[in-house]
Amino acid sequence: MMDPSAKEKEALQLLAEADKKVRGAQSFFAGLFGSSSRLEAACDSYSRAANMFKMAKNWSAAGNAFCQAAQLHLQLQSKHEAATNFVDAATAFKKADPQEAINCLLRAIEIYTDMGRFTIAAKHHVTIAETFESDLGDVEKAIGHYEQAADYYKGEESNSAASKCLLKVATFAAQLEQYQRALDIYEQVGAGAADSPLLRFGAKDHFFRAALCHFCIDPLNARLAVQRYEQLFPAFSDSRECKLLKKLLDAHEEQNADAFTDAVKDFDSISRLDQWLTTMLLRIKKTIQGEEEEDLR
């Protein structure tokens, strides 16, 4: 069985070697006779040390060693290697210090965008967004990085990856009660899906979510939106989502909380509602008069 302390000891030796090589590369004679080979050797030692620290599960030390290798690669004008090391550092830091992982990915993104590698930059923006979302609980910052990723994906004609990121933005925007922002995205992605034979099946869900966002702003707008979606995508009329929306709109107009609840229960018994849909439907239900009193009984 591997002894973590032995691996850590080995890593520390490699770090000392790397530091020595860097100092040697900065000496007067190295300046005269070229220091790049010593710096390349130091990069290699830092990377090996980082991997030893990973085996010893010392994630912060691994991240720091990868960062040192990345900085030297930048000095040597080896941009691709530097970016790769920053990404490796981020992977290690993610287990110990999510914010530091984000900082490393931002350094990598800077290099990739400078090199015109926008698809890979977008991928790392998604990772940052996910880290803000799941590790740091900062939805606003997650939204910003999903939007940036979508922007880069669009520029590279990766439309399906862009839509995926935008749908995450819409999900969060609606949770934050930014309904107009959310419904604009759902309508845009829904219209694109309606025109594509491969994506048509998903269009009804996007229009369903857009209509619920409309409903949160103004029920009359929601009714007009449903009519618009039926014209834009005739298959929507026969969908269970469209039929549910019409029942909910009628129940709301009649201020009938029981009819509203029954319609939701019927739908849920066949197609399970996810957490987002449940939250939205509860928000809408609470706007029916008398609902608060009923909840208190």
Rank of each mutant, 00 (worst) to 15 (best):
L248W: 02
L32H: 07
M55T: 13
E254W: 07
L224G: 01
H206P: 02
A194Q: 03
L281S: 13
K20M: 11
H252I: 08
S36W: 07
E8M: 07
L249N: 01
T91R: 15
E10H: 06
A83F: 02
Q227F: 01
T171H: 13
R23E: 15
Q275K: 09
L273Y: 00
R240M: 13
D295E: 15
S27W: 03
T91Y: 07
D184M: 15
F28R: 10
G63L: 00
A30I: 07
S237Y: 08
V87L: 10
R240F: 02
R228V: 05
D114T: 12
K154F: 08
S269H: 10
L281W: 01
L39I: 06
S5T: 12
L282F: 10
E291M: 14
F267S: 02
L105N: 11
N103C: 08
F29K: 10
A89M: 08
R107P: 05
Y112E: 08
S45E: 09
D151E: 15
K79T: 09
A193W: 09
T171Q: 07
A222E: 00
A121N: 04
D97M: 12
K7T: 06
D262N: 14
Y112T: 13
A263G: 13
L282V: 11
D250A: 10
A18N: 05
Q227N: 15
A122P: 00
D88P: 10
L249C: 05
A108G: 02
I102G: 06
K204W: 07
L105V: 09
K168M: 15
M52P: 03
S36A: 13
E241A: 06
Q26K: 14
M2T: 11
R272S: 10
L76T: 03
A16R: 11
S60M: 14
E130N: 03
A92M: 03
L14Q: 08
P197V: 14
E157L: 09
K286M: 13
I217K: 11
P234H: 02
Q68Y: 04
P197C: 08
L273V: 08
K141A: 06
L74M: 04
R200A: 14
A56L: 07
I111W: 00
I284F: 00
A96N: 06
